[in-house]
Structure formats: C-alpha cells, structure tokens
Simulated assay, not measured.
Amino acid sequence: MIGRKLNVKVADGMQVPRYAHDGDAGLDLRITETVTLEPMQRCIVGCGLSIEIPSGCVGLLFPRSGLASKQGITLAHSVGVIDSGYRGEVCAPLINLSYETVTIEAGTRVCQLVVMPYVPCELVPVEELSGTERGTDGFGSTGVV
C-alpha cells in the first residue's frame, strides 16, 4: 500500500485500527465502552486513539453502513472533520435513529476514518459571481426523476 504515514496513539487495551480489506478507503474505528441508546438518544463515545493527520490532509469520520442500515445507529453529525492540528482522542457522536433501544458493546466498529488531501482556498471578495446554467436554483431545482 502506498500512502502517507499516519501516527496513531492507542489507549490501553485498544488495537491499532486497520483496513478490513486491501483497497478500502476507511479504517474501522471501535468504541471503548458499552453504550445503550434509547430511540433518538445521542451520546459521544471514545474510540480509544489519537491520530496525527498529515499536514495538507483531513480526517473524515463516516458511519458504518451496516450499523446504520440494520440497527439505525449512525453519527449525529453525519460526517466528522478532524483537522491536522487536533491531537485529542477521536470520538464518535452516535445517535439511535431506530424505534428500538439499542446496546452497542465495547469494541464494536461504529465508524470509519478516511484520510484525504484537501485544497485550501484563498477567499477573494467580489461583487458578483460568474453565471452558470443553474444559477441560484437551489434544493430540488433539478427535479426528482
């Protein structure tokens, strides 16, 4: 595998995360404690590691699709952003979108971390933006079919 190095500090009893398969974009992250969530309840739970995102990159936390589709457990913020300067523990803000109470055991893989480069932009104040075919048409402007 070719890529950048990602320094990882794991908490006692936790393992260094890994890619489930060659070619996977996301590293599976596990939670450090058992949590029980009532319907629509949220909580923040640690993943037992701190990381050093390389400069010029961002860490993105995504829900695990199986947990979300089968049990209704997803990330409360949809996608989390971890900046390269952050050195604290990676945490998962979980929410139960199901109608059932759900218990998630310590060690369960709840989200995945994707590290990718980003493009910083210089903000240039202007009076007008260039025109496009879409223009200012917003949500749903292209229809549903």
Rank of each mutant, 00 (worst) to 15 (best):
L27Y: 15
R42W: 01
V102N: 07
L6A: 01
T108R: 12
T108K: 13
L123I: 15
Q112P: 05
L27P: 07
R87F: 00
V16I: 15
L29W: 01
S69Q: 02
C57P: 02
V126Q: 09
M1N: 09
Q41V: 00
G3D: 11
A25Q: 11
G56I: 03
V144I: 15
T32R: 07
C47G: 08
T32F: 01
C91N: 12
S65V: 01
D24A: 10
Q15M: 14
G56Q: 00
E128H: 12
V124Y: 07
L61P: 05
G138C: 11
L67Y: 00
L94G: 04
P93G: 03
I104R: 07
S130A: 13
L75R: 03
A68W: 02
L129V: 12
Q112I: 03
V110Y: 03
S65A: 03
F139E: 14
T34W: 11
C47H: 09
G88T: 08
V124P: 06
S141R: 12
A11G: 00
S141E: 10
V16K: 05
T103A: 07
Q112F: 01
E128T: 11
E122C: 08
D83I: 05
P125Y: 08
G46S: 14
T34F: 07
P54E: 06
G46E: 09
L67A: 02
E52Y: 01
I82H: 05
G59E: 07
E52V: 02
T136C: 02
D24I: 05
R134E: 11
L29A: 04
Y99P: 04
Q71I: 00
A68I: 03
C57A: 09
V45H: 06
S50F: 06
T108N: 11
T74K: 01
M40L: 13
Y86C: 08
T34N: 06
P17I: 10
T36A: 04
G85T: 04
G138A: 15
G23C: 10
D22I: 07
F139D: 13
R18W: 04
D22Y: 12
V81R: 06
Y19S: 01
Q15F: 10
R64W: 02
V58I: 12
P17N: 08
